[in-house]
Amino acid sequence: MLRCLIWLLAKPFLWLALGLAVSGREHLPRRGPALVAANHNSHVDILALLAAMPWRTLDRVRPVGAADYFLATPVRRFLAMRLLRGIALERTVQRGADPLGPVRAALEAGDILILFPEGTRGRPEEMGPVKAGLSKLAVTCNAPVTPVYLQGAGRILPKGTRVPVPFMCSVLVGSPIAPDGDRVALMAALGVAWEDLRAMAPPLHWH
């Protein structure tokens, strides 16, 4: 409840600070288990997505991030784990371990998870290859995947920079895709959805 109140105050600030433009907001999940999968270029991505989420769902929303990065320093750990209630995911898998275990448990508890399936922020304003763990999660937990295309955050704070520069930020939400057991078909449908969303984004004159 307190978290919701904090967000109620933080949201208008984020909208103004990020110059947020959200389209397809009605497609965002209202209840879990659900996955929100977005392209990833910047730390600002998660703030843009959280600001776009309906505030009533924020108690259930949890971002999934890389353990090697977000557990590396106490400050990052506090911001990612305590403030945003993130779930840390091991990027290097030990033999016999189940890296997706904590994520699956959260889904089974009915949470809405935000994933960046590229697994890294990559080059600014470019979408890299998508990891297959996403479809595995969606199919085994029977959670619908809402594709989101983010544009602009990679200009505000690209990987390797420390000072944010103001730019407008677009959040384009596509309709959720329910898994029917076929992982390959799900990934293909998501790929098409991201491509369609990207075509709707404002033209990017950035080089």
Partner: peptide, 26 residues
Amino acid sequence: SFLALREFLSLAPTRRADRPALLLAY
């Protein structure tokens, strides 16, 4: 003015290397 400038600089062609100059403009 800030909001209008941000909209303008988001539309206009800019280069990644221009970040310090853009920050100065703001």
